[in-house]
Design a protein around this nucleic acid. Structure first.
Length: 490
RNA sequence: CGGGGCGUAGCGCAGCCUGGUAGCGCGCACCGUUCGGGACGGUGAGGUCGGAGGUUCAAAUCCUCUCGCCCCGACCA
């Protein structure tokens, strides 16, 4: 590229920021730690939302919306939950400003102090379970399967675009069930939905597993997660699904009468994914030419770049490609024809590569003479000249092929960067080099903590569906039932 | 909150040590030639040098204070 971006291999985080900037996805705002998601970035997020929302609906969930503010007394009710989130809460203490008598501008009106502080939601368990109290009386009211699309605020020390911002957009599911078994099934079902979304929409392979006690969601009995490996060898938690037991029901005094006419507390789950998935998408596939989008999430799947000098030539080219564009649209493919004459073709080629558009079609006067079209694919940066006849069908299957190809690439990368390690020296060396490190762990929080202190590696998850085979803990040498996934993480 | 770094044109930077007419690249505007991988030439617009105070005949440059941002750590979807 003439105006190359920072190489991925040289400075990963600079590369990451530059992809976001040059693909026009988002920017830091003037507001501390907050992010502006720009139209192109938001278009991708909307496609993610749509796909996820359809999956939630297909599994029987309904959308609703709950308040932004959580009275402090609500947040306090579940003790562990309160403790876990206390350190990162934005708090509303006043409801009015007034002119500053000592100078220009405004000041907080001390007379407008709230009797009870309001917390800007860091998550909505508290408000939602307070609401559920009024919704649940009988086993007939269960299961209650609710999802909300919302913003939340967590006052993070250091922020990074998409990966960690003070305010972020997400989806949070909150469900209530009559039995423990059903709630656990729901937790696992939604983890499966996330894994399916990550793999078949984002083309990003994930490991499904359980968090250790120390990494568990505050107030949960069990936290399930999906973990993905980024191209710099660091892990990213891409989604979580929590089995909350009866903790919130008890804290918020939500009870129902079961079929045996006995009072019981319902069992709860909550699960969420956020705009962090955008960060995952960027880091999983992009290269030194910019963003690489899986076709299923690309706002523009095919871009047509006419190559012309004269207005008259453009008109001829448009006529030449019109049937193809029509056919692509009929096939449900989103096509953009960039007939802008302010930029030259070479500029446009680079621009659409930066934006990750999966397929680019180039058409010039040469093609008109030959009845051809140039088809370039973003994932492999290859191009070929094909007869115009039948090209729409070819493109349609090419998009599927690209979707599959980038998944396979990410999968190969993960496999090449997943290591099985059996002694402490190898463990430290491998963690330093990056990747998922599969090692035995004795199951204690002490060992987990010491490993974290000495290597900065955390247990990303205890994988589900792995073969149980006993071994010796890589750190303590004590007995261990199975290998867990260690990595440095975002 | 600890440790580093930076504030000069829309963006990226030089100038500061050693005070003396505020510069370069990109971008922007106009004209011409170009147009199948980020074009080239010409002309031009654009600045209270983050802010306040001080030293000086003279401050982007030296001194004091202040504000803001970025990076590294603790925290974390």
């Amino acid at each position: 590229m003439a105006k190359g971006i920072t190489k991925r291999s040289e400075n990963y985080s600079e590369w990451y920021n530059e992809i976001i900037k040059r693909a026009d996805l988002a920017e830091n705002s003037a507001v501390r730690g907050c992010m502006v998601i720009k139209p192109y970035g938001f278009a991708i997020w909307e496609k993610m939302q749509r796909a996820l929302d359809d999956m939630f609906k297909a599994t029987g969930h309904q959308n609703a919306y709950f308040p932004l503010f959580v009275p402090k007394s609500f947040l306090e009710k579940e003790e562990e939950h309160a403790e876990g989130f206390a350190k990162e809460c934005a708090v509303v203490t006043h409801y009015r400003l007034k002119s500053d008598p000592d100078g220009k501008g405004l000041m907080v009106d001390p007379d407008a102090k709230l009797e009870e502080e309001l917390i800007v939601r860091p998550t909505s368990e508290a408000v939602i379970w307070n609401t559920f109290k009024g919704w649940i009386q009988s086993w007939r009211d269960l299961p209650l399967l609710i999802n909300q699309w919302a913003n939340v605020v967590r006052w993070e020390m250091r922020t990074r675009l998409f990966l960690r911002t003070s305010e972020f957009l997400w989806q949070e599911g909150h469900t209530a069930h009559a039995t423990e078994q059903e709630a656990i099934e729901e937790t696992e079902q939604m983890l499966g939905v996330y894994a399916e979304f990550a793999e078949s929409w984002m083309a990003m392979p994930v490991i499904q597993g359980l968090k250790t006690a120390s990494e568990r969601f505050a107030g949960a009995v069990e936290t399930y997660c999906i973990e993905a490996l980024m191209q710099d060898g660091k892990a990213l938690q891409a989604g979580t699904s929590h089995f909350l037991g009866q903790n919130f029901a008890k804290s918020f005094d939500v009870k129902f009468v079961n079929k045996e006419n006995e009072l019981d507390y319902p069992w709860a789950t909550s699960w969420g994914v956020s705009t962090r998935l955008m960060g995952a998408l960027i880091m999983a596939h992009s290269d030194d030419n910019g963003l690489v989008l899986p076709p299923k999430l690309a706002p523009i799947q095919v871009v047509v770049v006419p190559i012309f000098r004269e207005e008259a030539d453009l008109a001829k080219i448009m006529e030449h490609i019109a049937p193809i564009v029509e056919e692509l649209k009929t096939l449900g493919i989103s096509v953009k024809v960039d007939d802008d004459d302010k930029y030259k073709p070479g500029f446009k080629f680079a621009e659409y590569e930066l934006k990750g558009v999966p397929v680019r079609l180039g058409v010039g006067m040469r093609d008109l003479e030959n009845g051809t079209i140039e088809v370039a694919r973003r994932d492999e940066l290859t191009k070929e000249t094909l007869p115009l006849e039948g090209v729409a069908k070819h493109i349609s299957s090419l998009l599927d092929e690209i979707q599959e190809n980038i998944y396979n690439k990410a999968m190969n990368f993960r496999e090449e960067n997943t290591f099985t390690v059996d002694n402490w020296e190898d463990f430290k060396a491998q963690i330093e080099m990056g990747g998922f490190v599969m090692a035995y762990w004795d199951g204690t929080a002490e060992t987990e903590e010491k490993i974290k202190q000495e290597t900065k590696a955390t247990i990303r998850c205890i994988p589900l569906n792995s073969i149980e085979m006993a071994g010796e803990c890589v750190y303590s040498g004590k007995e261990s039932a199975k290998r867990v996934v260690f990595a440095k993480a975002y």
